[in-house]
Design a binder for these strands. Sequence first.
DNA 1: TGATATTAGTTGATTATTCAACAACGCCGG
DNA 2: CCGGCGTTGTTGAATAATCAACTAATATCA
Lengths: 163, 163
Amino acid sequence: MTTTTRWLTAEEQRIWRLFVQACESVFAATDTQLIRDSGIPHGYYEILVHLSEAPGRALRMTQLAHASTYSKSRLSHAVTRLEERGWVVRRECATDRRGQIAQLTEEGFAALAAAAPGHVEQVRKSLIDALTPEQISQLGEVAAAIVAAAADSGSKCHDADLC
Amino acid sequence: MTTTTRWLTAEEQRIWRLFVQACESVFAATDTQLIRDSGIPHGYYEILVHLSEAPGRALRMTQLAHASTYSKSRLSHAVTRLEERGWVVRRECATDRRGQIAQLTEEGFAALAAAAPGHVEQVRKSLIDALTPEQISQLGEVAAAIVAAAADSGSKCHDADLC
DNA sequence: TGATATTAGTTGATTATTCAACAACGCCGG
DNA sequence: CCGGCGTTGTTGAATAATCAACTAATATCA
């Protein structure tokens, strides 16, 4: 436990900071584009995407929260705002009276369809087109390894919402 | 302008989502660790780091905002809270009477020093140790390319705070 | 110099996120 | 069928982030 700290080497630190910067720049760019062109914050967009891909364009709150890596509370607030925009409606769940089902409306689907091209274009500009094909596949493997490592250490997770 | 959208291929989309997930998992883990063990949110930690590395452990607000990729407003609020904790003080700037200089206090430095080992350990767990040495250097190049691309397209940036 | 534009930084209102507490329901053992 | 227990989802208060408006000081330039 109290072994001396394994500090990062100069090179490791450089790469760590580059990584942080790269993430921030990509998310800032995609977020800005999405809000500017469609008025949809990045987080809402992800919710709409997951709903649009679900059978019947509907999902239980918990499943949607998990898919979007939202906490239940955050999702509940977010869906309330999406309902105000008319993009989502809440429905009762037939098999579980506690359950709520979030369903994408036609307007919500239309808003998503209208926003998608600009968003995709921005993802290309910020990420895909910035890299060589080889770098893209390397990024894929690196990202997969990071996610896998997180899943491992997260296996002992006991927090309320996540996992 | 209105050319048909260059949609992402299935593989590109897979990698994009993996990338998003990887970033989220790393930041969630480092954030959680930092708050749990030191009560320091990730954003504040970065501010303290930049101050600690500056000559005299002090920086003009604007420089600090830029270094931490904070907006001026956000930084101003954040420094207010850091002052309340006794970790930072504001000083007048001798050469520009508009200016404010944020200076790290001894307590602030001590808090940073106490938090650093755990944070570094978490960065290792979430990122460095999850990758092979080759992947780490690949990640460095990929991140550098992403940052460079963002800097290019950001050159025409006219927003108030950034750039 | 004096008029105007820029820059530095703060503030308060609006909006988003987290956190802890909670109500309602389902599950399961006695 | 009942009582405890975990789950589902919501709520409201506290905290944080964004946005627009603002003050005050400096730069620019005729």
